[in-house]
């Protein structure tokens, strides 16, 4: 999608026009283009769901699926929850929506091995360019905040049994170190340490009180 159209969309979203169902076509095309071109615009997607909420007769299930799948690609942000809150009972009853919600649930619970198994049984993620790598990015994020060193085999499993070449490129991307059986993620001592909260009382905050006692 060229910049001109995005500009139009930004204008629509800024004003009361965002509730005008006449814009659904252009917004839905925008969702499809996000899926195809691996771009992402949460606000526009929520606006589409809101238009469905206001005009249930205009509900489009395929677009709903794309929006939800795109929200999966933006973990660890809670976009998926935001989308889910706007779904109508009819959408919640849709089988594909149910499956996507199930996948999101597994991802949120960080059961990544199960996720790869379940996602392999579906065919709809093929419509989302860069879907798997977006999920791997999220997994790397969780690994990055959790581990100092991690077993290499385990890391490979978390990332969906990727081959050595792909693993090496993820390790490089995040600046981790391959140490044979282990992968060194980062030194966490500095980020994660015991905090001591001691009471500090500023003179200013007591000045008034003390003045009152005179």
């Amino acid at each position: 999608m060229d910049d001109g159209k995005e500009l139009i969309i930004a204008d629509i979203l800024k004003s009361i026009e965002r509730y005008n169902p006449d814009h659904l076509n252009i917004l839905e095309a925008y969702v499809a283009s996000q899926a195809k071109n691996n771009t992402y615009d949460l606000e526009a997607n929520l606006a589409v769901l809101k238009l469905y909420q206001f005009n249930p007769n205009k509900l489009n299930y395929n677009i709903t699926h794309l929006i939800l799948l795109k929200a999966l690609t933006n973990f660890p942000h809670t976009d998926f929850t935001l989308c889910k809150c706007l779904l109508l009972p009819a959408q919640m009853d849709d089988d594909t929506v149910k499956t996507i919600i199930y996948l999101a649930d597994i991802l949120e619970s960080c059961d990544f091995a199960l996720f790869w198994m379940k996602v392999g049984m579906t065919d709809f993620v093929a419509n989302i360019t860069g879907f798997y790598d977006s999920i791997r990015k999220f997994i790397c994020h969780v690994v990055g905040i959790t581990f100092q060193t991690i077993e290499k085999d385990y890391l490979v499993r978390l990332l969906g049994d990727i081959d050595g070449y792909a693993l090496a490129s993820w390790i490089k991307k995040y600046g981790w170190k391959d140490e044979g059986d282990l992968v060194f993620i980062a030194s966490q001592d500095n980020n994660i340490k015991t905090k001591n909260i001691t009471e500090k009382i500023e003179f200013e905050s007591l000045a008034q009180l003390m003045a009152g006692c005179l």
């Binding site: 959790t146 581990f147 100092q148 060193t149 991690i150 282990l182 966490q188 015991t194 905090k195």
Partner: peptide
């Protein structure tokens, strides 16, 4: 954080 098989805890 987890260092291989050891959990290091900061409270």
């Amino acid at each position: 954080y987890i260092d291989n098989e050891m959990i290091h805890i900061a409270d």
